[in-house]
């Protein structure tokens, strides 16, 4: 059996009249962080949403943990162990932090040990446990969004731009939590525009352009080659952090 938790082959996805994904081939190794990179509008979010089943694949296949899940409905994918953190965070704003977390534990009661791990990673969630999630700050909402994905054991996390628009201190908290997930053996497919975070967390990288994967390799290799970054993503940046 392959050591890839997720394997995507020839994935095409249309949204209305737009052909967004044009044959994505991607593998996510087990127990590693794979960065999905690329300019805005190249299909990164659509790739995650197609894996999650929000958009139906027009053709191609998605194999997760050895099973072809291409035709599975979204809830079945989630119950199979795929956790999803969307770009807009998907917080239930009228529910309290506690209710958001209780809901995230779909297979039973919220595990106390797991909850302590969440609180250790994101202390503000303990403080605002009984507060309406809609009253949280942007950073706290993002914490809750990731915490929700951590409420149950997952084999694969799909995380879409978790540091977008956040203050540096909160970005550091996010990166810490994701590093902890990685250390615990989780497989993560992470879309991230903050290259410093990508460099710090990523083991592997896949770069998208025009609805296809145009480069795959080690994140360290990409981070070390400014010319490659510029060619693939139009980036020419001094990587810091």
């Amino acid at each position: 059996m392959s050591d890839d938790v997720l394997r995507i082959e020839g994935l095409h996805t249309d949204i209305a009249q737009y052909h967004i994904l044009e044959g994505v081939d991607l593998s996510v190794p087990r127990g590693a962080v794979t960065m999905l990179l690329g300019r805005n509008g190249v299909g990164k979010t659509t790739t995650l949403r197609t894996i999650m089943g929000h958009w139906a694949a027009k053709s191609g296949s998605i194999t997760y943990d050895g099973q072809d899940i291409t035709a599975w409905p979204t809830p079945a994918r989630a119950r199979a162990g795929i956790g999803f953190v969307p770009e807009d965070m998907g917080i239930f704003t009228d529910l309290t932090v506690e209710e958001n977390m209780v809901l995230a534990a779909a297979s039973g009661p919220l595990d106390a040990t797991r909850l302590e791990t969440v609180f250790a990673a994101f202390p503000p969630l303990r403080t605002f446990w009984k507060s309406e999630a809609g009253n949280l700050s942007g950073g706290q909402k993002q914490m809750l969004s990731i915490a929700r994905a951590m409420a149950e054991e997952r084999k694969l996390y799909l995380i879409d731009e978790p540091t977008k628009g956040l203050a540096p201190a909160i970005v550091s908290t996010m990166a810490g939590a994701l590093r902890e997930l990685k250390r615990a053996g989780a497989s993560i497919l992470l879309v991230e525009q903050n290259f410093a975070v990508a460099k710090a967390l990523g083991d592997h990288a896949a770069v998208m352009d025009d609805g296809r994967i145009v480069w795959t390799g080690a994140m360290a290799e990409l981070a070390a080659d400014a010319g490659l970054q510029e060619r693939l993503m139009g980036l020419s940046m001094e990587v810091t952090g």
Partner: peptide
């Protein structure tokens, strides 16, 4: 109740409820 929680959350964002594993 949990079912009440699912209904309230589903009214707000059904796709996210499904992404958590519930058959809305």
């Amino acid at each position: 109740t949990k079912i009440g929680l699912i209904v309230r959350a589903g009214v707000q964002n059904g796709q996210m409820v499904e992404s958590l594993g519930y058959r809305l």
